[in-house]
Write a protein that binds this DNA or RNA. Structure first.
Lengths: 335, 335
DNA sequence: ATGAAAGCGCTAACAT
DNA sequence: ATGTTAGCGCTTTCAT
C-alpha cells in the first residue's frame, strides 16, 4: 500500500502538500495539484483512514447495536440506515446483542475505543437508563424504539399507542367485548406502548380490562401459539385477540386452527407490524403497518444531523405514524 | 477519554509498562500489573483502537458487502456472521451496494483505506472476476454465493445444483413433462446453478428443454407474477413451474389464482430457499430449504480462520447441502 | 522487570 | 503556495 510519503517523493513535493490536495485545500497551485493527483492515481494511493482518524478524531463510522434475533423489523431498519449514511461516506459497524449486559458492554467498548463518531441504539428492553445517560453524555446517539433522552440524543419511535388503539377499536366496532392481549417480551418498549393503546381503546368503549384476557409472549410465533392456547383455555375465552406483533398473531391463528376454531368467526385475531407474511396467512391478517424501511432512513438522517455539528437543532423525539391495515382476520369481508 | 499516558502517570510507570499489561505481556511483575490494572479501572481506560491499529496494522474488523435488497436470505447470513465473529472480538463493518460498480468501489475503498482485516463478499452477480482477483490479491476474503478463487479466499456456496435437481425431479415424479422455469436476476450465480439443476433433472428424465417454458424474473414476487403470466399465456402452457426462488414462486401462485388456475391441480408450483412465508401461502409451497443462518456461521468461522493466519489450511470451497421440503403446492397430499 | 524513544500514516499549526 | 515539524495514542525494539 502506497503511503503519503511515497506520493510526496514521487511527485517531488512535501507530504503536507499531498495532504492538502487529499483534503481539497484551496492553497495548492493548480499545477501541483494536478501533478499530485496524477501520482496518486499512478500509485493507486488511498489515504489510510486509521491514521487520518487518529489525527482528526473522526472515524466516519457509525455504530449500530441491535438485538440478535431474526427479524424483518430490524433488518429493514438497518438497511434503511445503511442506505442513507453510506451516501454521506459514513461506514457502519454493527453489533448484535443477546441481552442487556451484552448490549452495554458492546456499547461502551465501541464508545471508549474511539471506533465510532456516533451510534444508533436499538435496545427495546433497556432499563438502566441512568447508567446509559451517564455513559453517553455528550455522545451523538439515536435511540430506536426506546424513549430515552441524553444530552445529544434523539429517540425515534413508532406510534405504538395510536396504532394499538386503532386496531383494538376496530375489534370493538366488530362488536367484540372480550378482547385478549398477548404481550411481547417483558420490558419491551413497543410492547408496553401497544398495551397502553389497547387499554385506552377498551377504556374508551367502557370495557373493563381483565387479567384473564392477557397472556405473555416474547414476539415469536411459538410464544404467540402458547399464549393463545392459554387464552382459549379460559372458561369464557376472548372472542378476539390482539397480539403485540404479527408473528405472535400468526402463532395465535395456528392455535385457533389447532382447536378447530374458525378465524374470524369464532375468534378474531389481529397483530402489529405488517410483516410480509401477514398478507399470506389464512385468513389474511388485519394489522398495523409500520414503515420500517422509512424508519431506518429517518434514523440515518438524524444521526447524520447530529454528527454534522448542528446538534442544537435536532429533534429530541420523532414519532413515526402508523396505519391500520384491514384484511380478513378481524372479521371484515373485503380486504 | 483517558489515554495510556494518563494511566502511566497515575500509576507511576512508563507508558510501555501500561502497554504491556494491556497486551498481557508476561514481562511485568505481578505487583505492577495489579497497580496498573487498578488505575485502568479507576480511569475507565480503554485503549484507543484506532491508535492500536495504526501501529499493528490490524483493525480487528471484518468488512461485509451485500446487495441492497430486502432479503431474508442476506439478513440471516449477516446475523450468522456477526454472531460468530463478535465472539472473537471482531467488529463488522457493513456496506450495501446497488450494482456492481458500486460494489467494487466500496470494496476497494475498504481495502485500501486499511479499515478492515478481511472481507466477506456477497456479490452474486459479479462478473469482472479478473479485476477482482487482482484487487484482492493476498487479502483474506470469503465469497458467498459466488464461485471465485483468489489467492487467499474461500467460496461458500449453496448446493443449488442438487437442490434444483431434486425439486425438479419431484415434479417429474408427479408425472409432469411440461415444466417451466423462472430465472432469477441475470448473471446471478444461484439462479444459474439452479437452472443447471433443472436442466439436469429434465435430461435425466429424457425431457427435452424448451425455451418456451422459460421466463425471466429478478427474484421479486412481482417478477415471478409477471413471468408466470407469460408462461401461462403459451398455447400449451407448462403443467408445473419451478421458480428460482420462493418469492417468485409465491408471485407465480398469485398469477395462477388470478387466472383461476388451481394450484397444484391445474399447475404445480415449487420454489427454492424456504423463506418463512412459504409455509403460509395457499397452498403451502414445496421448496428447497437453505440453512441460511448456518451459512452465515460457517462464513464467519472461515473468515476467522483466514485471519488467524492458518491460511494454508483453509478450504477453497465449501458447498452447503440443502434439503427438499415437500408441502402442498407440488401436488403432494400431506405436508 | 522497566523505561526511553522511534515510528505507524496522517493532519495542522507554523514558518518561509 | 509550499515545506518543516510536532503530535494523535499506541506498540515495540533497544537499553538498562
Amino acid at each position: 500500500m502506497a503511503t503519503i510519503k511515497d506520493v510526496a517523493k514521487k511527485a517531488g513535493v512535501s507530504i503536507a502538500t499531498v495532504s492538502r490536495v487529499i483534503n481539497n485545500s484551496p492553497k495548492v497551485s493548480e499545477k501541483t495539484r494536478q501533478r499530485v493527483l496524477e501520482v496518486i492515481r499512478e500509485l493507486n494511493f488511498m489515504p489510510n483512514i486509521i491514521a487520518q482518524g487518529l489525527q482528526t478524531k473522526r472515524t466516519n463510522t457509525i455504530g449500530l447495536i441491535f438485538p440478535d434475533a431474526t427479524s424483518y423489523y430490524f433488518a429493514e431498519i438497518i438497511r434503511g440506515i445503511i442506505g442513507v449514511v453510506q451516501k454521506q461516506k459514513y461506514h457502519v459497524v454493527i453489533s448484535s446483542s443477546h441481552d442487556e449486559n451484552d448490549e452495554l458492554r458492546t456499547l461502551i467498548s465501541m464508545l471508549q475505543s474511539g471506533r465510532v463518531d456516533g451510534m444508533v441504539l436499538m435496545m427495546p428492553t433497556i432499563t438502566d437508563s441512568k447508567f446509559l445517560k451517564h455513559t453517553l453524555k455528550n455522545f451523538p446517539v439515536v435511540f430506536v424504539c426506546t424513549n430515552i433522552k441524553t444530552s445529544r440524543s434523539t429517540s425515534v419511535i413508532i406510534d405504538n399507542f395510536n396504532g394499538a388503539k386503532k386496531v383494538t377499536s376496530h375489534l370493538i366496532e366488530h362488536g367484540h367485548r372480550r378482547i385478549g392481549f398477548i404481550h411481547g417480551s417483558p420490558n419491551n418498549f413497543d410492547s408496553r406502548e401497544r398495551y397502553r393503546g389497547y387499554l385506552s381503546a377498551l377504556a374508551n368503549a367502557g370495557i373493563s380490562k381483565s387479567e384473564l384476557y392477557e397472556a405473555r409472549g416474547n414476539f415469536t410465533e411459538q410464544s404467540g401459539f402458547n399464549a393463545a392456547m392459554e387464552l382459549f383455555s379460559q372458561p369464557s375465552p376472548p372472542t378476539a385477540i390482539f397480539a403485540a406483533n404479527d408473528s405472535m398473531a400468526i402463532g395465535a391463528i395456528e392455535a385457533a386452527k389447532r382447536l378447530s376454531l374458525n378465524v374470524p368467526n369464532d375468534v378474531a385475531i389481529v397483530g402489529f407490524d405488517d410483516i410480509s407474511t401477514s398478507r399470506y396467512v389464512e385468513p389474511a391478517l388485519t394489522t398495523v403497518r409500520v414503515p420500517v424501511f422509512e424508519v431506518g432512513e429517518i434514523v440515518g438522517k438524524i444521526i447524520l444531523k447530529h454528527l454534522s455539528g448542528e446538534g442544537g437543532s435536532v429533534e429530541e423525539k420523532i414519532v413515526i405514524p402508523v396505519e391500520l391495515v384491514v384484511r380478513k382476520s378481524c372479521g371484515c369481508k373485503e380486504s
